[in-house]
C-alpha cells in the first residue's frame, strides 16, 4: 500500500495558531496519554526515572526566538506533529507497505503489524514527525487520532483529536482542508496559513497561522494617533481642580 492515493476524498488536518499558542505542552502530554493506550503499541519511555529519560512522543513543542532589527526579539512556541502530507515521502519509501495514506481522509498511518522498524520513513520525513519506539521497534507517528474522530463510543463533540480537545488556549483546530467552507480552511485563508518547508514538495496538509504583527515597535511614530487622549487638562493641582469642578458639573 505504499503508493499514495491519487487523491483523497477529504484532507483532514490541523491548523495551529502560533499567535495563540502559549507553549504549555498540554497537547504534547494529552497526545502521549491518549496514544500510549490506544492505537498500536504503547509509547515507551526509556530511562523513565534515570539520567536522561527519552520517550516516544508524537507531538512536540519547540520554542524559538526571532530577532530582526528595529524590533524586540520575539518568542514563538511551535508545536509539531505529522502534517499528513499529500505527497508524503514517508509513505513511498516504506518497503513493507506499513506506511500508508488513507484514501478516504488523507490520514497517514503506520500499520504496526507490518512495520519492520527500518527507520527509512523517519529519514524521509522532513519534519521529524515519526519516531521509532525503542521498546516495540515499530515506527510511531501522529494518527490524527483516527481512533477518536470517528469513534461512536464517545460523545460526538469529543470526536476530535486529543490534542485539539485539550488545548487550553484554543490554538489548535481540526478539520477538512478539502472543504473550503470548513473552519480550518477559512482560518488558514484569513490568516495566511503557512505550509512548512514548501521546498521539500511534500504538500503538507497542516497549516500554521503566523503570529500577528507585534506593536512593540521601537519606532514610536504611532503615538500621534492617540496623543489627543492625553492632551493635558492641567499640570498643577490648582488647574486640575478647576477642570474637576467643570467636569463634575457635567455628571
Amino acid at each position: 500500500m505504499t503508493t499514495l492515493p491519487k487523491s483523497t476524498t477529504r484532507k483532514l488536518g490541523l491548523v495551529i495558531d502560533l499567535d495563540t499558542c502559549v507553549g504549555c505542552h498540554a497537547c504534547v502530554i494529552s497526545c502521549k496519554e491518549w496514544n500510549t493506550s490506544n492505537y498500536g503499541v504503547p509509547l515507551s519511555d526509556i530511562n523513565a526515572y534515570g539520567a536522561e529519560p527519552s520517550g516516544t512522543f508524537l507531538n512536540r513543542v519547540h520554542t524559538y526566538e526571532a530577532k530582526s532589527t528595529g524590533c524586540n526579539a520575539q518568542t514563538v512556541h511551535f508545536p509539531k506533529s505529522c502534517l499528513h502530507c499529500e505527497d508524503a515521502p514517508c509513505v513511498t519509501v516504506c518497503p513493507t507497505g506499513a506506511s500508508y495514506k488513507r484514501q478516504e481522509d488523507g490520514i497517514v498511518l503506520v500499520n504496526e503489524d507490518r512495520c519492520i522498524g527500518c527507520s527509512l520513513c523517519a529519514w524521509a520525513c522532513p519534519y521529524g514527525a515519526r519516531e521509532m519506539d525503542a521498546v516495540a521497534g515499530v515506527m510511531k507517528k501522529c494518527t490524527l487520532c483516527v481512533d477518536r474522530i470517528y469513534n461512536e463510543n464517545i460523545p460526538e463533540e469529543d470526536r476530535i483529536p486529543a490534542c485539539v480537545r485539550t488545548c487550553p488556549a484554543g490554538a489548535r483546530h481540526f478539520g477538512d482542508f478539502a472543504d473550503p467552507e470548513s473552519e480550518v480552511s477559512i482560518l488558514s485563508a484569513a490568516r495566511g496559513g503557512i505550509a512548512l518547508m514548501p521546498e521539500q514538495d511534500t504538500k503538507p496538509v497542516n497549516r500554521y497561522l503566523p503570529p500577528r504583527p507585534k506593536t512593540d515597535v521601537t519606532d514610536e511614530s504611532k503615538i500621534d494617533i492617540l496623543a489627543p487622549f492625553l492632551a493635558p487638562i492641567a499640570t498643577e493641582t490648582g488647574g486640575f481642580l478647576g477642570w474637576l469642578d467643570k467636569a463634575l458639573e457635567k455628571i
Partner: peptide
C-alpha cells in the same frame, strides 16, 4: 527506585 523503562498502556 522506579523501573528502568515504561510502557504504560500495555
Amino acid at each position: 527506585r522506579g523501573p528502568k523503562n515504561l510502557t504504560y498502556g500495555d
